[in-house]
Design a protein around this nucleic acid. Structure first.
Length: 279
DNA sequence: CCTTGAACCTGCGGGC
DNA sequence: TGCCCGCAGGTTCAAG
């Protein structure tokens, strides 16, 4: 599920619901996800108060009052559910946090590609999971000049490069296709051969598609909180992702002749694009 | 250094 | 109906 917009929406939801609260109980139903979880996690969290919740790349960072940070990653299938009612724990509910106002937060992840760690605040940016991460695409330093510099000499495709978290963070398989569609750039273009002119269009396209998705997530989040407090599920409307064979939105391509949106494989993942618009 | 491919894990939908 | 296959929004590690 989770690329930058989804993780950002989850973070905002958690920040609103949990900031200032204290852990009163932690249920840990298995020892590891993608990697082993910290020893004595429950004991180390119990009694701690949450002081701040932030996002870095696709990581959720929950700052505690003892100068430690609870780090969560949703992997491919991770979900966070906020509730105030006692519910029987379901399949793949690996972590359940209980707070002093009665809030119950469940981390559910069927595929277990997610992650949970607890680290010293002083080590956060230099933590081995975070230190290699690249630019935040919604920050001011993500400029066309900066991206051009990062892409310089790269022989891989622009689509693969956009998903490389060492260069730019937060863009996954969906938003890579969506951003390139909006920018009118072929996903097959060699990254290092993108012209300054293309990159000048691409950077704002990336920002816009991520911000649009955050806005959509924010509204669906409000709806969901009224329903069952689930964070991480959104109704998305994508221009190209998952739409192979369908007409290209926003242009007058002759779908029967061109075949509409095309699906190809890059780096083992599906890419979707309009061959007419994204020459 | 770079690039590619496999691995981790469960669930779901399609074809037979 | 069941079985098998491919595929799924991420990241890491090994091999070339």
């Amino acid at each position: 599920m989770p690329e930058l917009p989804e993780v950002e929406t989850v973070c905002r939801g958690l920040a609103k619901a949990l900031t200032g609260l204290r852990f009163v109980e932690v249920e840990q139903h298995r020892a590891d996800l993608r990697a082993p979880m910290p020893k004595n996690l429950a004991a180390r969290l119990k009694g701690r108060r949450i002081v701040a919740i932030k996002r870095r790349a696709k990581y959720i960072l929950i700052g505690l009052d003892n100068h430690e940070t609870l780090l969560l990653h949703l992997g491919m299938s991770g979900r966070v559910i906020v509730s105030h009612e006692k519910t029987t724990s379901g399949k793949h509910d690996h972590l359940i946090f209980h707070f002093d106002d009665g809030a119950i937060v469940t981390f559910n992840d069927p595929r277990r590609f997610g992650l949970c760690d607890l680290i010293r605040d002083t080590d956060v940016s230099q933590h081995r999971l975070l230190r290699h991460l690249g630019l935040e695409p919604l920050e001011k330093d993500f400029t066309p000049e900066a991206l051009a510099e990062l892409l310089k000499g790269k022989k891989t495709s622009i689509k693969i490069a956009l998903m490389d978290q060492r260069l730019v963070v937060g863009i996954g398989n969906i938003y890579a296709s969506e951003a390139l569609f909006r920018a009118g750039i072929s996903p097959k273009r060699q990254a290092g051969k993108c012209r300054a002119q293309d990159i000048a269009v691409l950077v704002p396209a990336i920002r816009k598609v991520l911000n649009d998705a955050i806005r959509a997530g924010g509204s669906s989040l409000r709806d969901y909180r009224q329903a069952d407090g689930e964070l991480g599920y959104f109704q998305h409307h994508f221009a190209v992702y998952g739409r192979a064979g369908q007409p290209c939105p926003g242009c007058t391509c002759d779908t029967p002749r061109t075949g509409g949106i095309k699906q190809i494989t890059q780096g083992g993942r599906s890419t979707y694009y309009c061959p007419v618009r994204q020459g």
